[in-house]
Amino acid sequence: MWLVPFMVVMKGTSEYPLLFPLLFQWLRDVVKLQYFLNGLPIGSIYALVALSYSLIYAASGVLNWSQGDIVMLGAFIGFTIINVIKLGFTTGLLISMIVLALVGLLIQIAILQPLRNRQAPPINVVIATLGVAILIRNVALVIWGADAQNSPSPVSTKPIYLGSLSITPQDILILMAGIALMVILQFLLKRSKEGKALRAVAQDRYAAILMGIDTNRSDGVAFAASASLGAAAGMLVAPIFFVTFNMGALIGLKGFVAAVIGGLGNIPGAIAGGFFLGIIESMAGGQISSGYRDAITYALLILVLWLKPAGLFLRKTRQKV
């Protein structure tokens, strides 16, 4: 049953629906299914963050290192709206996404556009986005302070038991909200005018310019969309982790790992990479060692990069030179 949303998202990429039942079978036989289930909600958050990396990378070739801190900012804005202004979770989510879309747009216009106009080398772009990350992190520190905030969950955290397995309604909410956002994004990319322009730019920037597409506009759209995805990821992750000003580094890094596993710039790949990472992490943490969980993830990642430099889920392997 739970495969259905995947099939909708992955429509047009024929391997994925075949791949997942196989993976499922393997997981049931080889590892405990509980770890698999535990990995799904966090995987959906990773997938959202990975999507936000991939979207910008596909559209403008920029690796935005401030993505993790955008997630953090989204979490804080949502937290403030829900706990201080006392509006509902959905309203908080929407406002947070809109605010962050504006922030994303601002980053693109104020920082990345000048860099592009000056044809700055890629490493300067990397440093600029790292500068943005430092900026956002410390603005959040000044506004919200250094204390970890505990964001209450919108739904119950009491686990539901299904035979030997358990899952909390909160996890289901996170999973469902994440998947809903991915479907909406995919729909917008495929159907809306801006989405089509964005995909055209991603395919061939210069051809798109020749066809009269405003690339600055499409970059802006990519940044806004990606930042609001980040905000949503922040809102969803807030009830699981504490919200702190430096939560962005870790989640940003994890999202980036997921994006690369799926092949940067590859939208379905980013989703698959997110879930893959979430599940692998949960399994490594549960079955090998929780202290070394992240180290195992990174080691696996370097191995993946070594063996398949273009990501696990890219169909046509392009050489990354």
Binding site: L63, V257, V260, Y298, I302, L305, W306, K320
Partner: peptide, 28 residues
């Protein structure tokens, strides 16, 4: 050795991964 095949964001990620592995091993 793995990095010689990589460039751009992929290389960055491999190096980030290495740095984090070292830190986590020291920590644990």
């Amino acid at each position: 050795i793995p990095a010689m095949k990589l460039s751009g964001p992929y290389l960055v990620l491999a190096t980030v991964g290495f740095g984090e592995i070292v830190r986590l091993v020291i920590l644990n």
